[in-house]
Design a protein around this nucleic acid. Structure first.
Length: 285
DNA sequence: CGGTTACCCTGGATGC
DNA sequence: TGCATCCAGGGTAACC
């Protein structure tokens, strides 16, 4: 689940606990999640290293280790998340960090095992890996850059916004929320949007994402939690996602749930009145 | 090459 | 209660 706001919330929760701390040990309990590294090597690289920084890149959580000890990358994907406090070992633990000088542990849990854990020798290697599949961060991309990138694809605007190669950080929930805020139908071809429409999207992206970050993300079906186990508060502020049949907060029309091309299996919610799909001009008969 | 689909996993919710 | 089916915030490989 975690999209940019949830990952940002995780990072903000982890940073004060991990930054500057020594990792006494790391234990990989599910090697299936590892990418390009064995459990033995991962644990050896991390053991005794000091965490220099905790950051977010798109939907990635990035731990920089001091003293050339490398970079840890964790992708929570759908159901991954971190736990700082738990009375007992939580369910579905895939990776555990033990902190030096205390009993405190940081758990990475992921019931569906879709998450990924990687280690890179340096910033450059991590950056190359990120760049292979990601464009600029959704909170940093400029208007002109966004317009240029959207011009290059004939897909619908929603699949385009969710394409991490175009811009990084937006997933299924916030794509719907951004398009509602911008007043655009999710199937509008990206390359045919007017500059005024792209401008509305570009303005809506940081609005929506920052509102969601302020609320500490979205918790649906009690899946996502902050590192302290709290629910995100964006539910209740969301305009369309998961609101099938409920009245649009702007016009009162019932929100529609559908599936659209390019996003097989993923639900899409929108207001059919506020987000009209332009029809061809009809000739007078 | 660009766009679309199949598939990777698992557990909770829903339906019969 | 038991069992089958559907569903999910993401991402990539393979296909046309």
């Amino acid at each position: 689940m975690p999209e940019l706001p949830e990952v940002e919330t995780m990072v903000r929760g982890l940073r004060p606990v991990l930054a500057g701390r020594v990792l006494r040990a790391a234990k990989v309990s599910d090697p299936f999640l590892l990418q390009d590294v064995t459990a033995e090597e991962f644990e050896r690289r991390v053991r005794g290293a000091t965490v220099q920084g905790v950051a977010r890149r798109g939907k990635w959580v990035v731990f920089t280790l001091a003293g050339q000890r490398g970079i840890i990358v964790i992708q929570p994907r759908m159901t991954g998340g971190f736990w700082l406090v738990a009375p007992d070992r939580p369910d579905h633990v895939r990776l555990t960090f033990e902190l030096d000088g205390s009993d405190q542990r940081v758990w990475f849990c992921d019931n569906r095992r879709l998450g990924r854990i990687a280690w890179y020798p340096d910033e450059e290697a991590a950056e190359r890996a990120f760049g292979r599949s990601h464009g600029p961060d959704a909170l940093e991309i400029g208007l002109d850059d966004l317009a240029t990138r959207l011009k290059r694809t004939r897909r619908g605007i929603k699949p385009a916004l969710m394409d991490q190669k175009i811009l990084a950080g937006i997933g299924n929930i916030y794509a719907d929320e951004v398009l509602f805020r911008a007043g655009l139908h999710p199937e509008r071809p990206a390359h045919r949007l007017t500059i005024a429409e792209v401008r509305r999207i570009h303005a809506a992206i940081p609005e929506i994402l920052n509102e969601a970050i302020a609320a500490e993300g979205s918790t649906f079906d009690r899946n996502y939690r902050t590192v302290l186990g709290e629910e995100g508060g964006f539910l209740g502020q969301n305009a369309v996602y998961s609101r099938k049949g409920l009245p649009c907060t702007v016009c009162g029309e019932a929100i529609v749930k559908t599936r659209i091309a390019g996003l097989i299996g993923r639900p899409t919610y929108f207001c059919p009145k506020c987000q009209r799909k332009p029809t061809r001009k009809r000739r007078k008969t």
